[in-house]
């Protein structure tokens, strides 16, 4: 097989159909950008779930009196509650944080929110017990059991929040994948259409190739490569678009969340992780579409 012949045919084919080629590349790029975004969301959700599993499942906030008077948690109300929590079934660990420690954590979280740091005062915040549960325990049971105990102001069930956050992120992912699928369908039709057009434009060449005994493979390869080259260029544009989206929108949008420890910002590592997947998907899907189109619609 003559590589120079095939590559010349591919370049000529793409050039001759330049408007369709651009349409094909852009549609593929948009579809893959959406797919890439979906994959990044999946990765972020996985990371969030991991980091959330390490955080407290339940936070027991102590009332004002205990918070103010017993910063070392040595008096009966506080130490008794702590001992009881430690004994309760399903509790893996209990960590006491004094008002000052809660304040310090808050300041740390508000690292990039100076206005909140300004108004935060240790006296405004309650001391707390951070309770880590084993996976099988329902956090609501702890809420019921200790909700009315002396010294308890309220119990915050973090896992509800986490669940709803993960749920929302999963909705975003599903929505992105749905649009990506629709867009991918449009991209497939365009690829198929472009190949048919390309084959029609070159019917004299392919007719001659058939008559002089070129193999089917030799005749079809330039068309197949044309589809794959466009697909791969589309995937590279998609990677570029992901970078632009990260720089222009996501970094700003996710900054307020960065202190919470729930969602880490989208990093170049995330984009680097999804990029090869996008290129591979583009090459395989466009190649397959090209092959099927040639088999079904084009007599070569």
């Amino acid at each position: 097989m003559r590589a120079s012949f095939v590559s010349t045919e591919v370049v000529n084919g793409l050039r001759r159909n330049v408007s369709m080629t651009i349409a094909m590349i852009l549609t593929t790029a948009i579809s893959l950008t959406l797919l890439g975004s979906g994959l990044v969301v999946v990765r972020k959700v996985d990371q969030a779930q991991d980091s959330l599993r390490q955080a407290a499942d339940v936070v027991v906030y102590l009332n004002d009196q205990v918070s103010a008077e017993d910063s070392a948690c040595q008096q009966q109300t506080c130490s008794g509650l702590r001992a009881e929590l430690e004994r309760a079934s399903g509790v893996r660990s209990v960590k006491y944080l004094s008002r000052q420690q809660v304040y310090e954590r808050a300041i740390e979280k508000f690292d990039n929110r100076p206005e909140l740091r300004e108004i935060a005062r240790p006296e405004a915040l309650p001391a707390a017990m951070w309770v880590e549960l084993s996976d099988t325990v329902d956090p609501a049971a702890i809420q019921r059991q200790f909700g009315d105990s002396p010294g308890v102001a309220n119990i915050d069930n973090q896992s509800d929040f986490v669940r709803s956050l993960v749920g929302k992120l999963n909705d975003v992912r599903d929505g992105t994948f749905l649009i990506a699928a629709l867009q991918a369908f449009a991209a497939l039709l365009l690829i198929s259409n472009t190949i048919q057009l390309s084959a029609f434009n070159r019917r004299t060449e392919t007719g001659i190739m058939r008559l002089v005994g070129a193999s089917r493979w030799y005749t079809q390869l330039p068309f197949l490569l044309e589809a794959m080259v466009s697909g791969i260029i589309g995937s590279l544009v998609a990677v570029g678009l992901l970078v632009v989206i990260k720089e222009a929108f996501l970094d700003g949008l996710m900054k307020p969340l960065s202190g919470t420890g729930l969602l880490t910002p989208v990093s170049y590592a995330d984009i680097a992780f999804v990029s090869p997947i996008l290129v591979l998907v583009a090459a395989v899907v466009s190649g397959l579409t090209g092959y099927l189109t040639l088999r079904l619609y084009v007599r070569i």
Binding site: V212, G213, Y218
Partner: peptide, 11 residues
């Protein structure tokens, strides 16, 4: 030459 190129004849 096209007739020979497409059946893979050497240059």
């Amino acid at each position: 030459a096209f007739a020979l190129e497409v059946i893979g004849k050497p240059r």
